[in-house]
Write a protein that binds this DNA or RNA. Structure first.
Length: 577
DNA sequence: TTAGGGTTAG
């Protein structure tokens, strides 16, 4: 009975890893093999929030059983599957099969769900083989999990076949296939299927509304939403998210304001929406309203700052999140935004500090984070480290190549940038706008006008229309090389309004080459667009000074002092603080 | 066993 008591303690009383370790040690020393299996199963089925830390103990308990049967294995597999540890669930299933045990329906339906999540077609197919061999044809749970797996793998035809052959179906079977049709992109077909569902529940309705919302068909989504016999928080959140995705933050807010009950998803969706539309203050207002701020809320707000050029605020919030009174651990999402913020500030130190805590956070660098780091290291001048990370990537995509090309460009390694560009095209990866920003920057830094021009003109061959930033780089490149008239002509032929960056590049070039006529034109535009920037006045005054127009030069300088215009410090990739 | 929220390059 001592052991029984210990197990009950294990189930109810641990909230820290230390406690779990102590209780586990007691269970092991009391020889668990003599316990009734029922108690073991109760441990596994109990709801433990701190599941990651107890996983090793669950495995240890399984291995301490003298002769674990298929029920024990099934419980453990279900535990891992329910707690989101899908790879572990699949690997346990494989172990169980190796031991020669026949899985029960719990084990099979759980492992099918896990297969769907780990996106391994092969393991799903082999479990399907088991299903047919062992014979679960009448088990609605197993059959539904199977059809869901095929839906998630994008094979709706096979899913339909499973559905048609099912001896018994419930609403989950219908919903699973409905989502399969929706994910397949054919909304009309999905709608016909939805209309056929004999007893729709709120999930059927939500799925269909979400299908319309994700497909950008908000009118249909709204029409269906109004017809719903009952609505859950998810229904409202789906509508909000749909409006956010199509850029209608005002309509999203209307739904948000009238919904009967809100949860953290509602708030996070609004934060992301405001972030997308650049309304950082409104996002912060929502964030401050949240009572229980979890990791997702912090991630949304930190991402909002990072995406809206407020890197300092992003890092402040990140550091606040780590304080003991909040005590949250960052995950991959957090670090992605934090690295982006570091990169914008040229602050490598903050990252180097984070790196020493990676083991505590339990975050492993994936390709996504590594790509962000390539950008960070390259911008901070550590091009060799960036290169090392780039070569360690499992798969190099257009983002990784673009970051690396840009990194080579700003570090004066033009031939490396060109090689990478060609290598990328050789791997059949299409360059995008950012790739061209990188390669044009490289040509610009090296002063290679003709090569730059050729590359700029080749953008349209790849179906890309240069953005205002690409024009800015070209004007800079032409201007620095002294081709001022060509640069001016390029500006005049731009399909969009030139911004202060474009005119500023021309102004700088005029200062370098002492061209008063174009310099005055450029300065006029710059001042019109950004009158508070002092740099333009001093550039123009510099042009006057080089040709001896001292009075004009002086007038401008005193004008600046009189107006108290802000001087923007020279831009550099080193930290601005 | 099914539905709603986030991350990388410029």
């Amino acid at each position: 009975m001592v052991a029984t008591k210990l197990i009950l303690t294990f189930m109810k009383n641990f909230s820290t890893l230390k406690q779990a370790k102590q209780i586990h040690a007691q269970i092991i020393t009391n020889d668990l093999t003599r316990l009734e299996p029922l108690f073991i199963h109760r441990i596994l089925l109990c709801d433990i929030t701190n599941h990651k830390t107890i996983s090793p103990y669950i495995l240890s308990i399984l291995h301490h059983l003298r002769d674990p049967d298929s029920f024990s294995w099934g419980c453990v597999i279900r535990f891992f599957s329910q707690k989101g540890q899908f790879i572990e669930a699949v690997s346990l299933y494989i172990q169980m099969r190796k031991v020669g045990l026949c899985p029960n329906s719990h084990a099979v339906s759980s492992v099918l769900k896990s297969c769907a999540k780990v996106e391994d077609d092969l393991c799903g197919v082999s479990v399907h083989g088991d299903v047919q061999k062992i014979g679960f044809s009448r088990c609605v749970y197993v059959q539904t999990a199977l059809l869901d797996l095929y839906c998630k793998n994008g094979d709706v035809l096979t899913a339909r076949k499973v559905f048609d052959e099912m001896a018994e179906r419930n609403v989950v079977s219908w919903n699973s296939l409905l989502v399969g049709y929706i994910k397949g992109g054919n909304l009309d077909e999905a709608r016909c299927f939805f209309d056929e569902i004999p007893k729709k529940d709120v999930i059927s309705w939500n799925s269909m509304v979400s299908g319309y919302a994700k497909g950008g068909k908000m009118e249909q989504a709204c029409y269906l939403f109004r017809q719903m016999p009952e609505r859950s928080i998810v229904s409202w959140n789906t509508m909000i998210s749909g409006y956010v995705d199509c850029g209608s933050i005002r309509l999203a807010r209307e739904f948000f304001d009238v919904m009967p009950k809100r949860n953290s998803v509602s708030l996070i969706t609004m934060i992301a929406g405001y972030s997308k539309s650049g309304e950082v203050d409104s996002a912060r207002e929502i964030f401050d309203r949240m009572d229980d701020k979890d990791l997702w809320s912090y991630n949304a707000m930190i991402a909002c700052y990072a995406q809206n050029s407020k890197p300092k605020e992003a890092l402040d919030l990140f550091n606040g999140m780590l304080k003991p009174e909040i005590g949250l651990h960052p995950d991959k999402m957090t670090l992605g935004s934090v690295i982006s913020a570091c990169s914008q500030l040229g602050n490598l130190d903050q990252w180097l500090w984070i790196e020493t805590h990676m083991n505590d956070y339990g975050v492993v660098l994936d390709d996504h984070l590594t790509t962000a780091l390539i950008d960070l290291y390259a911008k901070c001048g550590s091009i060799d480290k960036a290169c090392e990370l780039f070569h360690g990537l499992r798969k190099r995509d257009v983002v990784a190549y673009s970051a690396m090309i840009y990194g080579c460009g700003v570090n004066g390694k033009v031939s490396d940038a060109v090689d990478l560009f060609e290598q990328m095209v050789g791997e059949c990866i299409d360059p995008n706008l950012a790739t061209y920003t990188g390669i044009l920057t490289a040509y610009n830094h090296a002063g290679l006008v003709e090569e730059g021009y050729r590359s700029f003109n080749s953008m349209k061959d790849n179906g890309l229309a240069p953005s205002v930033d690409h024009y800015g780089i070209m004007v800079d490149l032409l201007g620095r090389a002294g081709w001022l008239d060509e640069a001016y002509k390029l500006i005049m032929n731009m399909p969009m309004q030139p911004n202060a960056g474009v005119w500023g590049a021309l102004l700088l070039a005029c200062r370098l080459h002492g061209n008063v006529k174009l310099g005055e034109i450029a300065a006029q535009h710059c001042i019109k667009l950004e009158s508070e920037t002092a740099g333009y006045y001093s550039l123009l005054s510099g042009i006057y000074a080089t040709i001896g127009k001292w009075n004009d030069a002086k007038k401008l300088t005193t004008g600046v002092e009189g107006k108290k215009i802000i001087k923007i410090p020279g831009c550099s990739w080193t930290q601005l603080e």
